[in-house]
Every structure is written in C-alpha cells, then in structure tokens.
Simulated scan of single mutants.
Amino acid sequence: MTDFKDKTLLVTGAAGQFGRLAAAELLARGATKVVAGTRDPAQLADIAAQGVEVRRLDFDDAASLVTGFAGVDRALIISTVAPNRREQQTAAVAAAKAAGVSYLAYTSAPHARPNADAGGIADHYWTEQAIAASGLDFTLLRNHIYADMTLVGAGAALASGQLFDATEGGGRNYVTRADTARTAAGALLSASGRDIVDVTGPAPVTQAEVAALYTRLTGKPVARVGLTAEQLQAGLEAAGLPAFYAALLVAFDRDAAAGYHAITTDVVERYSGRKPQALVAFLEENKAALAQ
C-alpha cells in the first residue's frame, strides 16, 4: 500500500459521528493536511483547534462544492441520509473531478443495485456508477450494518420483549461504526487503483441471536418475531419513522434475507490494522446503554 499521509485529504460530512471518527483516525495516523467539510463550520471548532482546515461544504450548494474540493488530492465522501441523496452525491463526485481530486473513497452499502426492491440502496448504486465513470481511482466501501444500530433497536425490544425483523433468519455481519470509520481513513491514507470491498464484522449474526444477547446481558426476556417486509415498513412508520428512513431499514432486512449480509472479509483489518470488533463484545462494552 502507498502512504498518502502528506497529501491533502478531505472528509465530507465531518460534523457527523462517522466523519469525526474518520478525521480523528487520520490525525492519529499522521496525516498532515486534513480538511473537514461540513454544512456548518461552527460545529467543528474543536477539530479546527487540532490543526484541521474546516471548510463549508454543502452537497446542495454548488458554490460550496467548488470551494470545498479545491486543492484536495484525495477525498472521503460519506453518504448522506436525504431523499435527494443520489443527486447530492453525484454532484459531489462531479465537483471532485472538476477540482482535480485524484481518488475517492465512498461509504456505500452491500450489494448496491438499481432494482426497485433496493430502496435507498439504489442511491448507492448510482453514486458508485458516477464514481466509476469519473475516471478517478476509488475505493467503494460497502459498509455492512452498524453494530451500533443494535443499541438503537434495543429499547423497544426490551420494553416489549419482542424483536421484529424481516430477515427470514438471515445473518448480518454487524460492524461497528468506529471500525468502518477507521477503515475509511485507512483507505484514504493508503489505497490505490480501483476497488469495491465489503466492510464487515468477523461473523454473521441472526436476529434470534441478537435477541438472545439482549436477554443474556439484561436479564429481560426478548424473543425474535419475524415479519414480512411490508409489515415491518408499516410498523416502523407507525412508530414515527419517516417513510424514507423506514424504507432504508426494510431494504437492509430484505438483503439480509437474500444472504447479501452474510459475507465475511478482512477489509477492516487490512485498512485499520486491527481486527473488527464482534457484536457480542460491542454489546458487552455498551451494556449500560442497554439498560437505559
């Protein structure tokens, strides 16, 4: 692998959880010219104090894309969560190319495809296509579902004693947000050429196993309840989730049912230098959060 630590490295969406982790990893690994892009630079005063250049970068603002990518050698485009994210992200890719960026890392999703049943995952596919057509070098980081999401879903499951899903018993190779961010930073620092990789945890875990972990770690019985994709979509919307976001979650369940999430790779270790944390270890480490 090549060492790009002295190149100008941009992280978009740097005020988010993923972006902050990636920027911190770049600094920890010796990057000398880190640029943090965000819609609101005031949110990154702490990062600026560490010597990071903070720029306003809004994927819905063409002018900020021009100034945000100016002088950048390599960029990490962190996927957005918005109804128009396909347009946002393809605009960012075009701006990067126009600015002379030589390499893009992009946080995608497993089995990105344009099919109607892919939900928001289709946005990742079209972004991947735009990156591939750009002529730039790239690493498409197909991040599997965050282990962190099991903390988000734990409250309702522990309160009701039921964990609902539409995975049909398929496994998910949960990977922590921290591991994916360290992997993205590592790719930005060292990857070359053009590559598509799955970023996974160490082994797939079924929803029945997740329910059993909730039970073991809290002492509260939780049973896994299988639903159809349509039932899950309706339930998530009834619980107050916007339809767009609910569709993203349901699409992930559909893909787990199809086996697309049961892949295991060494990508985390390859780019971060450490083995991925297993879901059980993550939940044990965050046991206090399960009790809230």
Rank of each mutant, 00 (worst) to 15 (best):
R74C: 11
Q292Y: 09
V268P: 01
D123M: 11
I78V: 15
P242G: 05
L65F: 11
T67Q: 08
G170R: 09
V34D: 03
V11S: 07
Q277T: 15
Q233R: 12
I145F: 13
A147L: 02
A257M: 13
A256R: 11
N84Y: 06
G19W: 05
K275V: 14
D117L: 09
D165S: 15
K275T: 13
A91G: 07
L213V: 13
T107I: 04
A157I: 08
A70K: 11
R74E: 03
R86T: 15
Y106S: 09
A159D: 12
F138Q: 01
L21M: 14
D61T: 12
D58S: 12
I121N: 12
G13Q: 06
R86L: 13
L10V: 09
Y214A: 02
V210K: 00
P110H: 00
L140K: 04
E128G: 05
V101Q: 09
A109T: 11
A243I: 08
D198Y: 08
A288D: 15
R86Q: 15
G135T: 08
A178L: 13
N173W: 02
A24Q: 13
R20C: 09
A133N: 07
Q43W: 00
G51P: 05
G161W: 08
K5E: 01
V199S: 06
D40I: 04
Q89I: 10
P202A: 10
V81T: 12
A130G: 07
A234S: 13
G120D: 04
A99R: 05
A157Y: 02
E237R: 13
A178V: 14
A70L: 02
G201C: 02
E128A: 03
A229G: 07
L188R: 06
L10S: 06
K5A: 15
V35W: 00
A289Y: 03
D58Q: 09
T139I: 10
G219N: 09
G153M: 12
D73K: 07
A251M: 00
G68N: 00
L10N: 03
A92G: 08
R216Y: 04
